[in-house]
């Protein structure tokens, strides 16, 4: 397949090169990450609380800067625009659902004449056409999360980071969000998502990143990870054991699997 001359240049793969992130008191929260995220696949980031999953997403998205190392988008530094993030608790401006999407488009300098069609399109895709003119902050939590995805979708991102987008949702709302993530992925958007729900990671993921205490202990295809995790901490995590007391990195897996 030849690339259209007008198609935007791909910002992927995303490389993390010896990335460290230190929090208050110089405490390392992300330790020596070497990672490559390529286009197309759905990457599930899992691990116990405090593993550094959300920080990893914020570093990749550009909300945080690495203390050491560098983050490269298709070999270049900087924060490309063709990416979006959906938070666990999305913040909605005190205006209508439609205006919230319009605001995001205006920040991305999308021509005013084109915004209407884009907004209608994403509202339809996310099933929010009836709520289009309702104040966004009075929508149900599930609807707000769908709106957050619609807002991200409208920006036509090549990669979307989702930080536990279904953590506070009931099964029905979770199903709707998962379906939207599938559709977003089907149209070619790279998905990087944190979750505590191992079933969800199995349903949605192509590959898994397993983090523990700020370190990437395993990067593997989803089936391989859940059937035969190579790291013993990952194995314990998959079995549902509590890891909070476990220190160290477990047994190191074959380095060829982790860049």
């Amino acid at each position: 397949m030849t690339k259209s001359p007008t198609a935007p240049a791909s910002i992927l793969p995303l490389y993390l090169d010896n990335v460290w992130f230190r929090g208050r008191g110089n405490i390392p929260l992300i330790k020596d990450f070497n990672l490559s995220l390529s286009a197309g696949t759905r990457t599930m980031v899992i691990g116990p609380n405090g593993a550094g999953k959300s920080i990893l997403l914020r570093l990749c998205h550009g909300l945080l800067s690495p203390s050491e190392g560098q983050i490269l988008w298709s070999g270049s530094k900087g924060r490309p625009k063709a990416q979006a993030m959906v938070f666990q608790r999305p913040v909605m401006l005190r205006r209508s659902a439609r205006a919230n999407i319009d605001y995001a488009l205006s920040l991305h300098a999308v021509d005013k004449s084109k915004r209407g069609d884009i907004i209608e399109d994403v509202l339809t895709k996310t099933g929010l056409t009836r709520q289009a003119d309702a104040p966004a902050h009075v929508l149900s939590f599930g609807e707000q999360q769908r709106l957050a995805i619609a807002r991200a979708w409208a920006l036509n991102p090549q990669i979307v980071f989702l930080d536990e987008p279904t953590a506070s949702l009931d099964p029905s709302a979770t199903y709707q969000i998962e379906e939207l993530i599938q559709r977003l992925s089907d149209q070619g958007t790279k998905i990087v998502m944190t979750t505590h729900d191992l079933g969800q990671a199995k349903r949605l993921g192509d590959e898994v990143l397993f983090l523990h205490r700020g370190r990437l202990l395993e990067q593997a295809p989803v089936q391989q990870f859940f059937e035969q995790p190579e790291n013993d901490l990952a194995q314990a995590f998959v079995k549902g054991e509590l890891l909070w007391w476990k220190r160290g990195e477990g047994s190191r897996r074959d380095p060829k699997h982790v860049r």
């Binding site: 914020r58 998205h61 991305h108």
Partner: peptide
């Protein structure tokens, strides 16, 4: 409350 979301969308503090 808004900083992460607005920064994520591309808004500077001035904007």
């Amino acid at each position: 409350e808004y900083a992460e979301q607005l920064t994520s969308l591309g808004a500077s503090p001035l904007r």
